[in-house]
Design a protein around this nucleic acid. Sequence first.
DNA 1: CTTGGAATGTCAACAAGGCTGACATAAACT
DNA 2: AGTTTATGTCAGCCTTGTTGACATTCCAAG
Lengths: 170, 170
Amino acid sequence: MADGRPNAGISGENLLFLTDEQLRQGIEAMFFAYRGFTADPDRILTDLAYGRAHHRAIHFINRAPGTTVNNLLNILGVTKQSLNRVLRTLIEDGLVESRVGKSDKRERHLFLTEDGRALEGRLSDAQRARMRAAFRDAGPDAVAGFRTVLEAMMDTEMQRTYTRLKESGA
Amino acid sequence: MADGRPNAGISGENLLFLTDEQLRQGIEAMFFAYRGFTADPDRILTDLAYGRAHHRAIHFINRAPGTTVNNLLNILGVTKQSLNRVLRTLIEDGLVESRVGKSDKRERHLFLTEDGRALEGRLSDAQRARMRAAFRDAGPDAVAGFRTVLEAMMDTEMQRTYTRLKESGA
DNA sequence: CTTGGAATGTCAACAAGGCTGACATAAACT
DNA sequence: AGTTTATGTCAGCCTTGTTGACATTCCAAG
């Protein structure tokens, strides 16, 4: 539980990367990096009176056009009331279009409009620029490790969602 | 701007890891992983009628006992009013102690009480357990890459803060 | 010694975006 | 016909962020 630098070579393998101190550094790295991760889109969004919730909705509608509300709910992990508030403003503002389902008319399929895609592009460009710089600085091996650790950190349900999205876009 | 799999070997080096699709996967990995990252402490906190803001305050007070309010403000990146609301409840509940500074009596130095350290331990244990599992699954090389990319993703100011904390704890 | 500014606290008001609960509607399923 | 599903909506609550205004305390420079 305490730290320092104990157990300098247990079990033959070098497990120094699993000390509490290393884990704490990982935790703090996540905290500070996530701030950077959201900083650039946040700046664009506040000018438009939108928030991160709008960004997330726009991102995943762009990622999976025609997705249903229920599907989006599962991806985002919020309540329908929360999502609905966000979607309503996006639809009113003409960034998202909601079409009644053909086979199942209860479902609404969500699409970005021209304007919606334009905003999505601005937000993505900003967020990707930082990610690109970080990836380039770190190099391909580091990027592979980055992704491996993040995947292992997800809830298993989210791992599946993430993998499904990943494969649909490749 | 579009994707697919273009430019399959520009500039001699293999830059496939910098395609928009790769970056988008990185973005989504951050999103889903951060959910996992906060999930376990969040469960503990809701039972106690605390939120993530309380966790963050407790974490960094534990990390740097005796820190001033101003210093904490810089680390957390929120307004003093926001932090003050959180600190007040923690002090009222006997988890944090605020001592007037010796040399500069305007400053308040913050410490965790016995109870505060107990809660910090519970929260840290929960968060570290997931991080440890992820690190172990991914292996030391992946962990090194993970940290490299996260550091590169931070604002430069936060990089300095992160490094300072890291070195103070090693 | 006075005054300016820094560090802190506090009050008030507000907004975003989570949440729960209740209820309505339409469509699909059994 | 009755139940379940998908969605929307209203009302209300909480946390946590914001701004603005103002008080207090106290160091430090003039």
